[in-house]
């Protein structure tokens, strides 16, 4: 399928047409916190700003989600599972780093013996329209994790801002089908594509933050008891910012509330996350919890799913209240001598 273009001024028309058929989620600037929200109107979208402060994960994993409802009688209980998906969805203007987080989340939540029904159902009914990054920030390090400011992984369609127009590139069959719904879109010209290419190359070069991730997973194997964790965690406050703002962190807690079984976001940084009923806690202090976060992202997930559980979006770097920079942590680990590997394998 050919690439298309749309004038920026026409974008609200396209969104308006889409909204007749789809639930649309897109970056909006409500209360000056950029996040992906269900669109009320086309004019609400803010595509010109930086990537959203909050990651788009809550389109698929809302902070609070009802798993089912129940009514309890004397000797009776009635269960009702909620309707997970009301209709087809489009998520608009997902940055390539965040799109990759969906791929990683799919690997974790939609694979294996048990599949997360709520996540999977929503994913299945969602078309992801990306927006290439022309201006990566200084905290972006997607290229270190195999991504790119104009990467296509996890996307069905990729938009790219080429000044007065968006270039529309279909990536998957589902993306093509979406574009076919708009026969009025103009075909892209050679010049548009060249311009996009140039912007992409510039953007790629503009990702200056580099993290040497190679071999970190192996190195971490022997580092469980390394003194480095003590140093790294010293300033950590064990708040939930890094995990809640992480596009891939998806740990949750399950609880009952007012006739509902719900799940809510939880964080490995909280002390009650692993607290046993007996009072014993396998991760009693910040050291163990910080180690869990780093290990999970750069070692455990590599072992179980073949790649790091980080997309390099830089949100945790921007939001951390004590400037505990994950680039520095990974850098410090990769700078350690390699003979640290454990020998009991």
């Amino acid at each position: 399928m050919k690439w298309k273009v749309i004038e920026k001024s026409k974008l609200p028309n396209l969104i308006g047409e889409l909204a007749r058929e789809y639930e649309i989620f897109a970056p909006v600037d409500r209360k000056s916190i950029g996040s992906f929200e269900r669109l009320a109107s086309g004019s609400e979208v803010s595509l010109d700003s930086r990537n959203t402060k909050k990651p788009p994960k809550d389109v698929f994993i809302p902070q609070t989600e009802t798993l089912f409802t129940y009514k309890t009688g004397k000797q009776e209980v009635e269960l009702a599972a909620p309707q997970v998906v009301i209709g087809q969805r489009v998520v608009l203007a997902v940055r390539p780093c965040d799109a990759k987080s969906f791929v990683l989340l799919d690997k974790f939540l939609s694979s294996g013996e048990y599949k997360d029904a709520y996540y999977k159902e929503k994913r299945k009914n969602t078309t992801i329209v990306g927006l290439a990054c022309n201006h990566p920030l200084s905290t972006c390090f997607c290229t270190s994790l195999g991504g790119s400011p104009h990467g296509k992984e996890g996307l069905d369609v990729l938009l790219q801002d080429i000044n007065d127009k968006y270039l529309i590139e279909p990536i998957t069959e589902r993306g093509e089908k979406l574009i076919e719904k708009f026969p009025w879109l103009k075909e892209a010209e050679r010049a548009d594509i060249d311009k996009a290419k140039k912007l992409s190359d510039d953007a790629e070069a503009a990702v200056k933050s580099k993290v040497s991730i190679d071999g970190v997973d192996n190195k971490l194997d022997g580092m469980f008891d390394d003194p480095i964790w003590e140093q790294i965690c010293q300033k950590c406050l064990n708040c939930g910012i890094c995990t809640f703002f992480c596009p891939t962190c998806c740990c949750f807690d399950v609880l009952d509330e007012d006739g509902k079984r719900i799940r809510i976001w939880d964080s490995c940084q909280f002390s009650c996350f692993t607290l046993h009923g007996s009072g014993h806690n396998p991760r009693p202090s910040g050291k163990e919890r910080m180690r869990q976060r780093i290990m999970h992202k750069f070692n455990y997930f590599v072992k179980t799913h073949g790649e790091s559980f980080c997309v390099g979006c830089g949100r945790c770097i921007q939001e951390c209240p004590v400037n505990l920079d994950i680039r520095e942590v990974v850098g410090a680990i990769s700078a350690l001598p390699t003979d640290k590997r454990s020998d009991n394998d």
Partner: peptide, 16 residues
């Protein structure tokens, strides 16, 4: 209501 509805319960205020 408006201010606190933004809260995402990350507990950074408590942690800090």
């Amino acid at each position: 209501n408006g201010e606190l509805s933004k809260c995402i319960r990350c507990y950074a205020c408590r942690s800090v």
